[in-house]
Simulated assay, not measured.
Amino acid sequence: MTPWPVLLLIEVMKATDTRAARGLFAAIALLGVGAVALSQASDASLETFVSSVGIPLTVLLPVVAVLAVTGDWNGRSALATFTQTPRRLLVLTARLVAIVGLVLGVALVTAAAAALAFVVLHPDLLATTDWWAVTTAAGGVVALAVAAALTGTAVGSLLLNTPLAIVVTMLLPLTFDITAALLVPTAAPWISTLAFAAWLAQPHPGWADGPGDIPGAGQALTSLLLWVVLPLGLGWWRQLRRDVS
């Protein structure tokens, strides 16, 4: 049986040691530079630099998770993986932990690079920096990363098809939420694909709608159950029973 630390390391290496993954990390870096450049064009502040990387991360971080989840099945290496560690649930758990850690690490490095760019470009503005706003922006990046990792893992586990899972993770959130808001506006906040990530970025104890457009804890919970727990559970059940070859 493969020891747990080794299993985690293997999953991280499998998630990063492909041309697709390296290309994706390069795209994140390039888009991060673009986001910082746009922040530079507006009123520069440390919190805007840090939060600016959220736009490319929102799109690309779930794809990192999808590639990590579906790689075994699309690359026909599942047989080797589950032969070396027959306890599939252990492998799937290690994969989930590795993906969350990897995605969070990528997000934090990107945000740190943006912060460093601000320090280099605007050292004179550090004295007037609102550090609470910076902390809030960094917390938003962390929340985004965790939500992206969980969502990408759930969709990838359920579909086990890389192209289809990527399309779904990129298109479903906005299209579903917009459609729900038009057709069932009362229920839309409770079935939103984005409620969990939004609440995680700005948590508060209220059960229903919070201040502004922030979802309540109950809406975040239903979002988590519908779009992470349910597809992840079904996906794991499918992988636990699926034949490998």
Rank of each mutant, 00 (worst) to 15 (best):
N74T: 15
L126K: 03
F49L: 02
L60P: 04
L79A: 14
S42H: 14
L67H: 09
L121C: 00
L57C: 11
L104H: 03
W73I: 04
V33I: 15
V103Q: 06
T110H: 07
A115R: 09
G34T: 04
A111I: 08
G34R: 03
V97M: 08
S77H: 12
V53D: 01
I55A: 14
L46K: 04
F118N: 03
A35K: 00
T128Q: 15
A112M: 09
L96Q: 02
A107C: 12
V66H: 00
A80V: 13
V69R: 10
Q40F: 12
V100T: 08
Q84S: 15
L89F: 14
L92H: 07
V53I: 10
P86Q: 11
T83I: 04
T93H: 04
A94Q: 05
T48P: 03
V64E: 01
L96F: 12
L90H: 05
V97Q: 04
G34M: 06
V63K: 02
V100F: 07
L79F: 12
V53L: 06
G32H: 06
A98K: 02
A112Q: 07
V33E: 01
L46E: 09
R87T: 12
V97C: 05
I55F: 10
A68R: 03
P62V: 03
V33S: 01
A127D: 14
G32F: 10
D124A: 14
A35V: 09
W73P: 00
P123V: 09
G75R: 09
S52P: 08
S52T: 05
A65Q: 01
V53T: 15
V66R: 02
G54D: 04
L102N: 01
A65V: 10
T110Y: 04
T58K: 02
T128M: 07
P123R: 07
G32W: 08
V59D: 05
L46F: 11
A114M: 02
V33M: 10
A80W: 14
G75A: 08
V100A: 09
F118I: 07
V103T: 12
V91S: 05
L121T: 08
S42N: 14
Q40M: 08
G105I: 10
A41H: 15
P86W: 08
G105H: 12
A35M: 09
V63T: 05
L104K: 02
A41S: 15
V103H: 05
L96Y: 00
T70V: 13
R95Q: 15
I99K: 00
L96R: 00
V120M: 13
G75D: 07
A114T: 05
S45M: 01
T48A: 09
L104F: 06
T58M: 11
L79Q: 08
G101E: 08
L102F: 09
A113M: 14
R87L: 13
S77P: 01
L60R: 06
V103A: 09
S77E: 11
A65R: 00
A127N: 10
G34C: 07
T128W: 03
V36Q: 01
